[in-house]
Design a protein around this nucleic acid. Structure first.
Length: 206
DNA sequence: TGCCAGGCCCTCTTTAGGGCCTT
């Protein structure tokens, strides 16, 4: 069976590090229940400072848009409710996890699920891909996509489709259908050369 | 963008260095 509920999320941010004062400026997320996308969340977030020109160009989010957006704290309260007790997925999760942790800490909240990384999993099962950027993997796996790269909901949707495609491929290639989230998380941290061996062992045990 | 970050991973490694990813 699939994990009960998984939220695939993506943050657009003012920079690379919350430890250096950067904030989230947009969050997008897709909720997957039993392998089906059932809900979405998207909101701009006003960090109450001006973002630089590179971020405006990179994301298409400008200071005027942010000045009209609700504060980060208000958005994160709603997003925390959206998360519930779901497990979490992001592409290069270590990046989004730092911002999620920082923004939730700012409102005195935290999440309870496990956090998995679609990039680490892709590095295991698509070892022949040209690289493991989100856009490259979407093309590599022939995933249909809508919207613009580097907007939160569009990237979250693409990551969600990639995640489901990878679960399908694990099933098809290794006869390991319906692998639990916990096992997929473990797989994403398995040394590359041991992936087939770990999957074969899992198949024998299930 | 540039080089203010950081976790993962490979290798000419492990008392380290550098590329990949994310904005």
């Amino acid at each position: 069976m699939f994990a009960n509920s998984v939220v695939v999320l993506d943050f657009e941010t003012s920079g690379m590090s919350p430890d250096y004062g950067d904030r989230a400026i947009e969050v997008g997320a897709v909720k997957i229940v039993d392998g089906i996308m059932v809900d979405q969340f998207q909101s701009l977030m006003n960090p109450n400072f001006r973002i630089n020109g590179f971020i405006e160009d990179f994301t298409g989010i400008d200071n005027q848009m942010l000045s009209a957006a609700p504060d980060c704290e208000e958005v994160m309260q709603k997003f925390h409710e959206f998360l519930g007790d779901s497990n979490l997925v992001a592409h290069n999760a270590s990046f989004d996890k730092r911002f999620l942790d920082a923004e939730l800490a700012a409102i005195g909240a935290r999440y309870s699920g496990q956090f998995a990384c679609s990039m680490l999993l892709a590095r295991r099962i698509y070892q022949q891909a040209p690289n493991h950027k989100l856009g490259t993997l979407v093309s590599y796996r022939n995933i249909q996509h809508e919207g613009v790269f580097h907007r939160a909901l569009a990237d979250a949707l693409m990551t969600a489709k990639l995640w489901l495609a990878m679960l399908d491929d694990i099933g098809d290639q290794y006869q390991c259908w319906g692998m639990p989230f916990k096992m997929v998380t473990k797989l994403s941290k398995t040394p590359k050369k041991s992936v087939a061996k770990v999957l074969a062992q899992y198949r024998l045990e299930h």
